[in-house]
Lab assay of single mutants.
Amino acid sequence: MQGVVKVNSALNMRSGPGSNYGVIGTLRNNDKVEIIKEVDGWYEIRFNGKVGYASKSYITIVN
Rank of each mutant, 00 (worst) to 15 (best):
M1A: 13
Q2K: 07
Q2I: 14
Q2L: 12
Q2S: 12
G3Y: 02
G3H: 03
G3S: 03
G3I: 03
V5I: 08
V5K: 01
V7A: 11
N8F: 09
N8K: 10
N8A: 14
A10H: 13
A10L: 11
A10N: 11
A10M: 13
L11T: 08
L11Q: 10
N12W: 08
R14Q: 07
R14A: 04
R14W: 13
S15Q: 09
G18L: 01
G18Q: 02
G18F: 02
S19F: 14
N20K: 10
N20W: 13
N20D: 15
Y21R: 03
Y21Q: 03
G22Q: 14
G22L: 14
V23H: 05
V23A: 07
V23R: 06
I24Y: 02
I24E: 05
I24V: 15
I24H: 03
I24A: 06
G25I: 08
G25A: 13
T26M: 09
T26H: 15
L27G: 01
L27E: 00
N29T: 09
N29P: 08
N29S: 15
D31G: 03
D31T: 07
D31C: 04
K32E: 13
K32R: 10
V33D: 00
V33F: 05
V33G: 01
E34F: 06
E34I: 04
E34K: 04
E34M: 05
E34Y: 07
I35A: 02
I35F: 04
K37Y: 09
K37F: 08
E38N: 04
E38C: 05
E38H: 05
V39A: 07
V39I: 14
V39H: 07
V39G: 04
V39N: 07
D40F: 08
D40Y: 08
D40H: 12
G41Q: 10
G41V: 09
G41F: 07
G41E: 11
W42F: 08
W42A: 01
E44R: 04
R46V: 15
R46K: 14
R46Y: 15
F47G: 05
F47L: 08
F47C: 04
F47M: 07
N48L: 11
N48I: 07
K50T: 10
K50L: 14
K50I: 15
V51G: 07
V51W: 10
V51R: 07
G52M: 03
G52D: 00
Y53H: 03
Y53R: 00
Y53M: 02
Y53L: 01
A54H: 01
A54K: 00
A54V: 15
A54S: 06
K56V: 11
S57M: 12
S57Y: 12
Y58V: 11
Y58I: 04
Y58G: 13
Y58S: 13
Y58H: 15
I59W: 02
I59D: 01
I59A: 02
V62G: 09
N63A: 12
N63G: 14
N63P: 13
N63S: 13
